[in-house]
Nucleic acid binder design. Structure first.
Lengths: 233, 233
DNA sequence: AAGTAAAACCTGTCCTACAGGTTTGGGGAG
DNA sequence: CTCCCCAAACCTGTAGGACAGGTTTTACTT
């Protein structure tokens, strides 16, 4: 397994622990050896083991809690979100690029969701679109429902990698969403944005992948235009 | 710089340092305060600062080196690669799901690459396809050229997020590639696989996005079929 | 056999120490 | 006055000890 970014001993220990998880076939929730035991087995100080543990916890590969032993973690987009935000804040990634990626994967997501969604998921997606309509006057609430809408779609796609990626973009989206909203100043443009979401929800509920994808394309056409209008490079 | 609370110290310090980078507008290469200074300013021990630094380094948000101060890092797929591998090894993600995502983004990448590639990039991509042809008898070399080929395409797309994602899948691809190769036992099937790459390279070099995308679709149709044949769920 | 209290174990945080590696500033040579 | 080199100051990597809580296991009591 490839090792990331720390130096010397800590790097090695991170690798050893990762390998340990893989070779022992540990599953999420399973407990890892204690810091003291690892420190003894690997002939390094507890300091080094702790720094390795913290690194793995930062990547959400393990989970730490006081008094308890470290456990194998479930995948989580938290770390990815931070990484993307860092890329944007340091001008290595711009918002247009994020939107191109989102458009690409979300048109696929909505196609899969229309095919695979359960009835419960269809209901949830419809409900979230309705909530967006209801909160068109409250940008903060609208944004949260918007994010939840796209997140629910990704779950309905039944591919956790899509959920992971959508989650990873959520952090930076939350920071730029208001910009897009401000560039939709008229009631008509705002209603259109919400209506587009309702259309997508209906298409997914109707199990019509074609139309769902078309709706999502429209949504992104409109969003990207809004961002360009706002001058967001 | 503010003083942090009394619980979850490391988490808080990670947040504070991230915020510091953002608010000061630090760019890759810029130096962060020393551990001693941070420890003093935030009223925590150096231990805590170090664990926070290691966490940020694991996510490739900062870079550490002995004797030198920590610096802001360039985005890098190392951490993402580890996270994806972890998801696969713990049965939270399967290979088919990875391939669906790769297909989705790589068909977009190849379209952009055909439009945006520089002449140098076109030459590099053609060269890598040629190298694949030349090493059709040497699986290890072939795999590396294959990975480099897709990586070069992502760079030619001029969207660093695509490069990041392709890089993130590289680790797990490296581990499963041999499975796909074994399920192409005949000379004809192997030649076809390599020929597909050459076709894609030519289409990109010819600035023909349509055909490049078609070629990439074909490539993934064939790859997914190969994996299914091998029984990889 | 079940419940409970103590013991053993474990993590979070702080501190000190020291071996190297790096940056800086000052002094000397030209 | 400028440039180079070296020593001092600074910085990180690793080890080890200490102790306050939180958690799990053990063993005893009922």
């Amino acid at each position: 397994m490839e090792i990331v970014g720390t130096s010397g001993l800590v790097r090695n220990v991170i690798g050893t622990i990762s390998r340990h998880i893989r070779e022992k076939g540990l599953m999420p929730g399973d407990r890892l050896p204690s810091e003291a035991i690892l420190s003894k087995d690997l002939n390094v100080s507890r300091t080094v083991v702790r720094e390795a543990f913290q690194s793995l916890a930062a990547m959400r590969i393990i989970e730490l809690a006081t008094g308890k032993r470290a456990t194998v973690a479930q995948i989580d987009h938290g770390a990815m979100s931070l990484m993307i935000e860092h890329g944007v804040h340091t001008d290595q990634i711009n918002i247009q690029q994020i939107y191109d990626v989102r458009r690409t994967i979300e048109t696929r997501i909505v196609t899969l969701a229309a095919i695979r969604r359960s009835d419960a998921e269809a209901a949830e997606i419809l409900a979230l679109a309705a909530q967006m309509q209801a909160s068109v006057e409250d940008p903060a609430a609208l944004m949260e429902h918007d994010l939840a809408f796209h997140s629910a779609l990704s779950r309905a796609s039944r591919n956790p990698v899509y959920s992971l990626l959508i989650g990873a973009f959520q952090g930076i989206t939350r920071q730029t969403w208001p910009v897009g909203w401000k560039s939709r100043p008229t009631q008509a443009s705002r209603d259109l944005m919400v209506a587009t979401h309702v259309d997508i929800a209906r298409s997914v509920a109707a199990s019509d992948p074609q139309q769902a994808m078309a709706g999502m394309s429209l949504h992104f056409d409109e969003s990207v235009r809004a961002l360009l209008t706002a001058g967001l490079s």
